[in-house]
Design a protein around this nucleic acid. Structure first.
Length: 424
RNA sequence: GGAGAAAUACCCAAGUGGUGAAGGGGCUCCCCUGCUAAGGGAGUAGGUCGGUGAAAAUCGGCGCGAGGGUUCAAAUCCCUCUUUCUCCGCCA
């Protein structure tokens, strides 16, 4: 969330930022500023009454000790106590209203983010490799997977439902190999591997910004107030919730494998075939906690670290800087890494690397402190390093052979133990 | 899932209704002392919200696991929840 002090001193800037994201919260922001004034008035009133009450609480035992009569002052205090109760209730209501509006306001895009309405206005930053060329008609990964008997959505549909997959044989092994390859690469590159819980509580979902606005996108347990994680970002970022980190420890870099669960509400009919859009998929996530001084440099590094695994796999990709209208709710700046997907005949998102600046840190109360200094909010960053299912899809399609087999990229052969997946 | 116990600061820990939340360890600074050890003194509740102020400051609210309640007044009494520990049950 944004700082209420920032909003009240820059309401027009915040309104414009929301408009640049194709939203409009002008009325809400005006109301927020009004509520904030009332809230502070009321706070001053109730606090001065409480100060009076505290003073009396010190006097009463003193008077009693001296044998004086306290019945009059107690009667007065009873009245003040009732007033405080009333004002506190009113104050709580304003605070609740304020919170509701503040939680609806997205992050302010960084100045370097291009203003634009949709993904057509994203800015391409760089490319690696060239789109793969075929001298025959290449197949889509779902057809390759079916042909090799390594991907089986039909059985998953019977066992569970739509948007789930069974991987079989070398397909399952490929998925597992990629996870290990990603984690090993990032670990060698200075990230600390963590294996998080796949369910989190409401406070964690709120801390990283999935709640309260996007509750319908998540799978919620009926037995607990727990949610299946949509990404490892949620448990890993919340590791340091309500903590003050020693400044010398920054930046903290984690990599984490997790299954990810998404309801995909509102995307019915899109990407219904193959591995691109599933309710459950695997992902290796990179998470950083950085000093605000250099968080944007850390974003560049994190993006490069995510790109590295695609380079080692020899998959063609490009990096785009998302425009304001395409930016995620909590993000100040995002680079998407898009891998070449022959069946789509275009680049498809395989990683999203974001700097949230202090937006998540404020919600989750993640701070750091220099020796003798004041506690300040950290900047949080994360990026996929990278999505595993989409990597399988990209490998199957980009490394396919005319006979229906798929060559295993060099980097994965030690994990796979074979250099090709052939029809059995 | 059942029964019991606990949660106070960086750590240990006292405090069962009333004026400033003891004490110790550690840490920081100072004194003393050939060095070290020992000793003496001071500081050590961070943080957060609000008021005044250009600022430095300064005043106040909150804070004893979390949230409610009782009371003029709650670390202390009551209720709900969370976590940890011990025992029992179940279990990969």
């Amino acid at each position: 969330m944004l700082d209420i002090k920032f909003i009240r001193t820059n309401p027009e800037l915040v309104k414009q930022a929301v408009r640049n994201r194709n939203g409009n919260l002008d009325a809400e922001i005006d109301r927020l500023v009004e509520i904030d004034v009332k809230r502070r008035e009321l706070t001053a009133k109730t606090e001065s009454l409480k100060a009076e009450q505290n003073a009396a609480s010190k006097k009463i035992p003193q008077i009693k000790k001296e044998g004086g009569d306290v019945s009059e002052i107690m009667a007065q205090m009873k009245e003040i106590s009732a007033q405080i109760k009333e004002l506190d209730a009113e104050l709580a209501e304003y605070e609740e209203q304020q919170k509701q509006i503040v939680y609806m306001i997205p992050n302010v895009p960084d100045e370097s983010v291009p203003v634009g309405t949709d993904d057509s206005m994203n800015k391409e930053i760089r490319r690696f490799g060239e789109p793969t060329k075929f001298d025959y008609e290449p197949k889509a990964h779902w057809d390759i997977g079916a042909g090799l008997d390594i991907l089986d959505p039909e059985t998953a549909a019977k066992v569970t439902g739509a948007r789930f997959h069974f991987y079989k044989g070398l397909g399952a092994r490929l998925e597992r190999s990629i996870i290990s390859f990603f984690l090993n690469t990032h670990t060698e590159n200075g990230y600390t591997e963590v294996f998080p819980p796949f369910m989190v509580n409401r406070a964690s979902m709120t801390g990283t910004g999935q709640l309260p606005k996007f509750e319908e996108d998540a799978f919620k347990l009926t037995t607990n107030d727990y949610f299946l994680i949509p990404t490892a970002e949620v448990p890993v970022t919340n590791m340091h919730r309500d903590e003050i980190i020693d400044a010398s420890k920054l930046p903290i870099s984690y990599c984490a494998y997790s299954a990810c669960f998404r309801a995909e509400a509102g995307s019915a009919g899109r990407d219904t075939r193959g591995l691109i859009r599933q309710h459950q998929f695997n992902k290796v996530e990179l998470v950083k906690f950085a000093n605000p001084e250099n968080s944007f440099e850390e974003l560049e590094k994190l993006t490069n670290d995510a790109e590295r695994v695609l380079q080692l796999l020899g998959l063609p990709y490009r990096v785009v800087c998302l425009c304001s209208g395409d930016l995620g709710f909590s993000s100040a700046k995002t680079y998407d890494i898009e891998v070449w997907m022959p069946s789509y005949n275009r680049y498809v998102e395989i990683s999203s690397c974001s700097n949230f600046v202090d937006f998540q840190a404020r919600r989750a109360a993640i701070r750091f402190k220099e020796q003798g200094g004041k506690a300040q909010l950290v900047h949080t960053l994360n990026g996929s390093g990278v999505a595993v299912g989409r990597t399988v899809a990209a490998i199957l399609e980009n490394y396919q052979n005319p006979d229906g087999s798929v060559t295993i990229p060099e980097a994965l052969r030690p994990y796979m133990g074979v250099d090709k997946i052939c029809k059995r």
